[in-house]
């Protein structure tokens, strides 16, 4: 028997790693992967709560989160390809046209 809180702490650690990567990474693809890591952390807490309260809707929500993540990855990577085609860089510090 594993306490529910262990699962929540693990999902919190994964989410925190995702936030940290989002903030400190400079490569746009790695930043995007950090977002996927955050989504995975949230999915784990969904499934843990679903198992704790014996409610199957949690798993359905994980299914929807995965669908949205897949759509987001497809569009996001297409945007990255378009940015690379015009700016010739993947460094987010050099994509600063809208900066004052």
């Amino acid at each position: 028997m594993v306490p529910l809180s262990y699962y929540l702490v693990l999902s919190g650690i994964l989410f925190a790693c995702g936030v940290t990567g989002f903030l400190i990474k400079r490569n746009i693809i790695t930043i995007f992967m950090s977002i996927e890591l955050m989504l995975n952390g949230v999915n784990l807490s969904f499934v843990a709560f679903a198992a704790h309260w014996h409610v199957l809707a949690g798993q359905i929500f994980v299914f929807f989160v995965m669908v949205v993540a897949a759509a987001e990855a497809a569009v996001g990577l297409a945007i990255i390809i378009a940015v690379y085609r015009t700016r010739e860089t993947l460094n987010v510090d050099q994509v600063n046209l809208l900066k004052l």
Partner: peptide, 16 residues
């Protein structure tokens, strides 16, 4: 989280 939700435990294969 560890202090206030630690009462519930999750068994192996808990989902029905």
């Amino acid at each position: 989280v560890l202090r206030h939700s630690g009462t519930g435990e999750v068994a192996v294969g808990a989902l029905p």
